[in-house]
Write a protein that binds this DNA or RNA. Structure first.
Length: 193
DNA sequence: CAAGAGATCATCT
DNA sequence: GATGATCTCTTGA
């Protein structure tokens, strides 16, 4: 079943950990794609210098200030979209970045979109994942209770995981070292070890 | 293989 | 006008 609003209202760290082993579902005219989440990162609030919202409330970060359980999608480096799920209370800006999933359904469609045949290269990174799942800024603000984009709990226990510092946030001062990246142990579908 | 550069644009200064 | 929660390709050993 679909994860509830209350699930996303938990602390960002808890959401990031518990999302591991859940299933990301994306419906689209071209077909449905599903992936098992194997890597996430937590961006925990306005004081977290790696979190976009630490720069203040702007048009771009507005969604993070809204209620939990919505998608925060932004465009970066002139090429890639990043998919985040908004967490915690309304007016408290925080989110979980989905960094990698293991392809489960719609693999052919993913291969086409990614122009790659290698299973491990389809969604092993936040930019790749968005390409494979056709996620772009038009989905910014999408309610995860709807049918376009949501996360499903198939009743499996959270897999064993480990944590590391987050990727690509060298500018974040003392926050760059925080172990807020979570990876399923032993998965070959993570972005990197 | 590992390391480095380049691609390209929305957002904020 | 600078820069980024990235990816891919090229280079060189």
């Amino acid at each position: 079943m679909k994860l509830s609003q209350t699930f996303y209202e938990q602390t960002t760290i808890d959401v990031a950990k518990q999302l591991l082993g859940k299933y990301l579902v994306r419906t689209h005219p071209e077909g449905e794609t599903i992936g098992r989440i194997v890597e996430t990162e937590a961006y925990v609030g306005p004081h977290d210098l790696a979190c976009h919202a630490s720069k203040g409330r702007t048009a771009r970060t507005e969604v993070m200030f809204g209620p939990a359980g919505r998608a925060y999608v932004y465009f970066i480096y002139g090429f890639y979209n990043m998919l985040n799920l908004v967490t915690e209370a309304k007016d408290y800006p925080a989110a979980v970045l989905i960094r990698a999933v293991e392809p489960v359904l719609g693999v052919e469609l993913m291969k086409e979109r990614r122009k790659s045949d290698e299973l491990r290269n389809l969604a092993s990174g936040p930019g790749k994942l968005c390409q494979a799942f056709a996620v772009d800024r038009t989905l910014n603000g999408t309610d995860l209770k709807g049918n376009t984009l949501y996360v499903e709990d198939r009743g499996e226990p959270t897999p064993r995981f480990r944590s590391t510092p987050r990727i690509g946030v060298d500018y974040a001062g003392k926050w760059k070292a925080k172990p807020y990246r979570f990876l399923v142990r032993g998965s070959e579908f993570v972005s990197k070890l």
